[in-house]
């Protein structure tokens, strides 16, 4: 480390790629601790998500049985061998709940990140350039937002044939318009700021202004919107799976709820646990999203 570095301010040090490591980690942890104490609900949401994400990620190692193994008799009750019992063909429900999160969460994360990125790009273009481009994009967005989302998802997945890729594609399409609308609004208020004008007066061309000056200022908003969308996308994926248009041959919470109707007489654990897993995961994402929005915009606190 060069000698004169220590006289620099922390911000400059950070820019130079040097951080005060030894203090950095404990300070960050302390900040996180305070943040968690100030937002107990958000912390609960985060913990729920971490538990389900961990269970999904580690399912191949931790689950007592494989998702497809016929490990018991049909419709067994809850026991130590089968914590949640077994379902209509004798597969272990606890293991299926663990494995079921894999599809739900990966589909949700990929399509929300993809859709939000595309939506942000479209929103930035629409808001920054205005005029005809803006009106064409906005009218399209109007129509897309108003059109029944589930019907759109059903049409796209059924026509392209349900598979991991087509479901991600359909959900990505569903995410784009809402994000584009919100980001456009932010860009409209952002582009009249003096620093944008200053950049323009130096002769910077549009892509540079968009990427260097506007994007960093709307990206935080984009991340907040992404968190609030995740819960809804998991619900949408589960609904598709419930209707039989989910990822074929994969353990899925939505399809397991649907299968629970096949048991005769009805078997309560098969109906309860997969649905409870969906509800808890969506709940986790929703309250975490609310919390993150409150942190970003304290004026909204307690209004929801």
């Amino acid at each position: 480390m060069p000698e004169n570095v220590s006289v620099q301010s922390p911000a400059v040090l950070a820019d130079m790629g040097i951080s005060e490591r030894s203090e950095g980690i404990s300070a960050t942890l302390r900040k996180l601790g305070t943040l968690a104490r100030q937002n107990p609900l958000g912390t609960v949401g985060l913990i729920i998500i971490l538990v389900f994400a961990g269970a999904a990620l580690l399912a191949p190692y931790l689950a007592p049985y494989s998702a497809t193994a016929l490990s018991g008799a049909k419709n067994e009750g809850m026991s130590s061998a089968h914590l949640f019992g077994t379902e209509v063909v004798g597969r272990d429900i606890f293991s299926r709940v663990m494995f079921g999160g894999r599809i739900s969460m990966s589909v949700a994360f990929i399509s929300v990140i993809g859709g939000a990125s595309a939506g942000m790009l479209i929103g930035i273009i629409s808001g920054y350039f205005g005029g005809t481009i803006d009106s064409i994009i906005q009218r399209t967005v109007d129509t897309a937002i108003a059109f029944p989302a589930l019907l759109l998802l059903l049409i796209v997945t059924q026509l392209l044939g349900p598979s991991f890729r087509t479901i991600v594609f359909a959900l990505t399409l569903a995410v784009i318009p809402g994000v584009a609308r919100i980001v456009r609004g932010a860009v409209l208020s952002e582009k009249n700021n003096q620093y944008v004008e200053a950049a323009r007066s130096t002769g910077a061309w549009a892509p540079r202004i968009l990427l260097r000056h506007i994007l960093p200022n709307v990206i935080a908003l984009g991340i907040i919107v992404m968190t609030t969308l995740l819960g809804g996308i998991i619900l949408a994926e589960a609904s598709l799976a419930f209707l039989g248009l989910g990822v074929p041959n994969a353990a899925s919470w939505g399809r397991d709820v649907s299968d629970a109707r096949l048991a005769f007489p009805y078997h309560i654990p098969s109906a309860i646990f997969p649905g409870a897993a969906i509800t808890l995961t969506v709940l986790g994402f929703n309250i975490l999203g609310d919390s993150i929005r409150d942190i970003a915009d304290p004026r909204l606190r307690g209004s929801r």
Binding site: A238, F242, R261, A271, G275, I278, V282, N286
Partner: peptide
Amino acid sequence: VRSSSVLGLAIPSFWVATLVLVLPSE
């Protein structure tokens, strides 16, 4: 009211409908 609305937004309607079929019959 607030907690039930947070819960209501998270529960999938197809699950509630399935429970409406399954639980009373049991």
